[in-house]
Measured scan of single mutants.
Amino acid sequence: MEVRTIKVFTTVDNINLHTQVVDMSMTYGQQFGPTYLDGADVTKIKPHNSHEGKTFYVLPNDDTLRVEAFEYYHTTDPSFLGRYMSALNHTKKWKYPQVNGLTSIKWADNNCYLATALLTLQQIELKFNPPALQDAYYRARAGEAANFCALILAYCNKTVGELGDVRETMSYLFQHANLDSCKRVLNVVCKTCGQQQTTLKGVEAVMYMGTLSYEQFKKGVQIPCTCGKQATKYLVQQESPFVMMSAPPAQYELKHGTFTCASEYTGNYQCGHYKHITSKETLYCIDGALLTKSSEYKGPITDVFYKENSYTTTIK
């Protein structure tokens, strides 16, 4: 009895394709271990004539594949690729409408935090270190965002349907971005203890939790000093293409032309909904596939993004 075979390709990165001759009487799992086709788990399936010449994702289970996976995804987590594939199996079914010149995501599976993050990423200057993220990001900007969303979920250790947080998501993504040249110098002034300067680099240099107003941050924000008295913390120097200011959701007025974009969060910790506000020729609110415009805006804002380049204080 002759062994019926077909020729397929296996890959971990969709760049390096490895030619395989597979036995049609055995499952993919018996031949390769966990195997995925377009995100779908085909591990328990036997090869079919229609699979001839198709590319299958496999887990990096030998040295060659491990090197290829690390170079593309910059992670050695053995569960990463499987999590990416199972997320992709959902995100490829989502709709990605162009809204006001940006790629958004039609609401499904509690994905409003991903839509808000995706919209924000198209408006701030950011370059990702893992080629996987950078490639998928370019495709997302062009309207094909399924891979990018699935990668975000995998890097953030999230599953489809789980509630997510924009600030946490951005923080994970910033860790995989090139923020080497970003720098922030802060000064804390206390009447009792004097003053202390701190220099922050990388992710810490672009994120701040405690106030939404970048102007206020430049002037000074009140913080408790270690001595128990009130101290003032203010920005001395900022070198970065953008800054992200966050605070627990509270009524906040966004003035046209003073910011790049913002995240609105309605609801409580267990259950809520994100919308995205962007400042173009007027203010726009993007909620999944829905767009509304207004000249002014007041609502429960939790993150505001500002364009920056270089700032030095005039406070002496």
Rank of each mutant, 00 (worst) to 15 (best):
V3L: 14
I6H: 07
F9N: 11
F9T: 09
T10V: 14
V12G: 07
N14D: 11
N14G: 11
N16G: 08
L17A: 07
H18N: 09
H18G: 04
T19H: 12
V22E: 00
S25A: 15
T27L: 13
G29E: 10
G29L: 09
G29N: 06
Q30D: 12
F32T: 11
G33V: 03
P34R: 10
T35I: 08
Y36Q: 05
L37K: 11
L37G: 08
D38P: 07
D41K: 07
V42P: 02
T43Y: 09
K44T: 15
I45W: 09
P47E: 04
P47F: 04
N49Y: 11
H51E: 10
G53H: 12
G53R: 12
K54M: 13
F56G: 02
Y57D: 05
V58P: 05
L59G: 08
P60S: 07
N61H: 10
D62S: 15
T64G: 12
T64Q: 15
L65H: 07
V67I: 14
V67S: 13
E68F: 04
A69I: 11
A69F: 10
E71Y: 07
E71H: 10
Y72A: 12
Y73W: 04
T76L: 14
T76F: 13
D77T: 06
P78V: 09
R83K: 14
Y84T: 03
Y84I: 05
M85Y: 07
M85R: 07
L88A: 05
L88P: 06
L88D: 03
H90M: 12
W94Y: 04
Y96Q: 02
P97D: 09
Q98A: 09
V99H: 12
G101H: 08
G101F: 02
L102D: 04
L102E: 05
T103P: 04
S104M: 06
I105N: 01
K106C: 09
W107F: 03
A108Y: 06
D109F: 02
D109Q: 11
D109K: 05
D109V: 04
N110K: 03
N111A: 03
C112Q: 06
L114A: 02
A115Q: 10
T116A: 13
T116F: 02
A117D: 01
L118Y: 07
L119C: 12
L119I: 07
T120F: 05
T120C: 13
I124E: 04
I124N: 04
E125L: 04
L126S: 04
L126C: 09
L126K: 00
L126P: 09
L126A: 05
K127S: 13
K127Y: 09
F128R: 04
F128I: 04
F128Y: 08
N129G: 09
N129C: 07
P130S: 06
A132N: 04
A132K: 03
L133F: 04
Q134C: 09
Y138G: 13
Y138N: 15
A140P: 03
A140N: 02
R141M: 12
R141L: 10
R141N: 08
R141I: 10
A142E: 15
E144T: 07
N147H: 14
A150D: 03
L151I: 02
L151K: 03
I152N: 00
L153N: 00
L153D: 05
A154P: 02
A154L: 02
Y155L: 02
C156Y: 04
N157P: 03
N157Y: 06
V160N: 02
G161Y: 05
G161L: 03
G161A: 06
E162L: 00
E162I: 03
L163S: 11
G164P: 00
D165A: 06
E168S: 12
T169H: 01
L173V: 10
F174R: 00
Q175V: 06
H176V: 08
H176F: 12
H176S: 06
A177M: 07
L179A: 06
L179K: 05
S181C: 13
R184C: 05
V185H: 05
L186K: 03
L186R: 02
N187W: 08
V188H: 12
V189A: 13
V189W: 09
C190T: 00
T192V: 13
T192L: 10
G194D: 01
Q195D: 15
Q195F: 11
T198M: 15
T198P: 03
T199I: 11
T199F: 07
T199H: 11
T199G: 04
E204T: 07
E204R: 14
V206C: 08
M207A: 07
M207V: 09
M209Y: 15
M209L: 11
G210R: 02
G210H: 03
T211N: 10
L212T: 07
L212W: 00
Y214D: 01
Y214A: 01
E215P: 05
E215L: 06
E215Q: 07
F217A: 13
K218Y: 04
K219D: 09
V221G: 03
V221L: 11
V221N: 04
I223Y: 11
I223D: 08
T226W: 09
T226V: 13
T226A: 13
C227R: 02
C227G: 01
Q230C: 05
A231P: 00
V236L: 09
V236T: 06
V236Q: 07
E239H: 12
E239Q: 12
P241A: 14
F242D: 00
V243A: 00
V243C: 06
M245S: 00
M245G: 00
M245E: 00
P248W: 10
P248F: 13
P249T: 00
A250I: 10
A250D: 09
Q251D: 13
Q251W: 13
E253I: 11
L254R: 00
L254M: 06
G257C: 06
T258F: 07
F259L: 01
F259Q: 02
F259D: 02
C261R: 00
C261Y: 01
A262P: 00
S263G: 01
E264Y: 00
Y265L: 00
T266L: 12
G267C: 07
N268E: 11
N268M: 07
Y269M: 14
Y269S: 15
C271P: 03
C271G: 13
G272C: 00
G272K: 00
H273L: 01
Y274D: 00
Y274H: 00
K275H: 00
I277H: 02
T278N: 06
T278A: 09
T278H: 07
S279M: 07
S279P: 05
K280D: 11
E281H: 05
Y284W: 14
G288N: 06
L290P: 00
L291W: 14
T292V: 11
T292S: 15
K293Q: 15
S295G: 13
E296W: 13
K298Q: 09
K298M: 11
G299Q: 03
P300Y: 14
P300H: 12
D303Q: 00
V304I: 13
Y306H: 01
K307W: 05
E308Q: 09
Y311L: 10
T313N: 15
